[in-house]
């Protein structure tokens, strides 16, 4: 059997982490929100933001997949490249499935009058006017971004260890601080606002494909030199 397919098969045996746990987390958040919403129902529409839990889960999933499966599969004579490709295929399939499910749940939410109690759990008003395929695409991009962000951090850790991870976070913190200070110093906040405002939601989210691609490529380069 093709060894990339073997890696995908190996991942898919872990049904709990890939399929059950993320939607279990979302389900729990939903139940809690619904209970609170039902108790406090006063006619207003509640915007819960509960949908964020699935994106957070994808990030965590990216973080743990390297520690969970990399040492195991590499020890079973899998190439780093095949591990990377197999994991990418698995994660992409899960992200696509999740994006479609999110879309479906949003439609159900709208059809049921926000679950009968005016609780918006999945709907994001900002993107609600975008056509169906566009919304699935947006979910997919953000889910993938979250996964590869976690995956990249985990690969970085495997490659450079704990100290490397510290240096990375210090570096990111310094870069963000510098950007904030410079933007304030040269009074460019308005320009930035106008620049971002010029994009449609769909265009803005689509641009997130670029950092996703960078994290994807970076993860591969890190993994190629990672040891067990």
């Amino acid at each position: 059997m093709n060894r990339v397919a073997c890696v995908v098969r190996s991942h898919s045996r872990d049904k709990w982490s890939w399929y059950v746990l993320p939607w279990f987390v979302v389900g729990m958040a939903f139940v809690i929100n619904w209970a609170i919403g039902a108790l406090a129902a006063e006619g207003d529409v509640i915007q819960t933001g509960g949908i964020a839990s699935i994106f957070v889960y994808m990030f965590v999933s990216g973080c743990i997949s390297v520690t969970q499966s990399f040492p195991f599969l590499i020890s079973l004579s899998v190439r780093r490249r095949d591990y990377f490709l197999g994991t990418t295929i698995m994660a992409s399939a899960v992200c696509l499935g999740s994006a479609i499910l999110l879309y479906a749940l949003t439609e159900i939410e709208k059809a049921t009058g926000s679950w009968g109690i005016g609780m918006r759990f999945f709907t994001i008003p900002w993107i609600d006017s975008i056509p169906d395929v566009g919304r699935i695409w947006m979910y997919l991009i953000v889910l993938l971004l979250m996964f590869f962000l976690g995956f990249f951090i985990s690969c970085w850790h495997r490659r450079f260890g704990r100290i490397g991870l510290w240096l990375l976070s210090i570096g990111i913190f310094a870069a963000v601080t510098l950007a904030l200070v410079l933007t304030t110093r040269y009074e460019r906040w308005d320009d930035l606002g106008r620049f971002l405002g010029g994009f449609s939601p769909l265009g803005l989210i689509s641009w997130l494909a670029a950092p996703t691609a960078l994290l994807f490529a970076g993860s591969y380069l890190l993994l190629r030199k990672a040891t067990v």
């Binding site: 045996r13 872990d14 709990w16 982490s17 969970q68 499966s69 040492p71 195991f72 020890s75 004579s77």
Partner: peptide, 12 residues
């Protein structure tokens, strides 16, 4: 290669 301290995925 079978090693002494082999790690397995938690759910396996």
């Amino acid at each position: 290669f079978i090693k002494e301290s082999q790690k397995y995925p938690d759910t396996f």
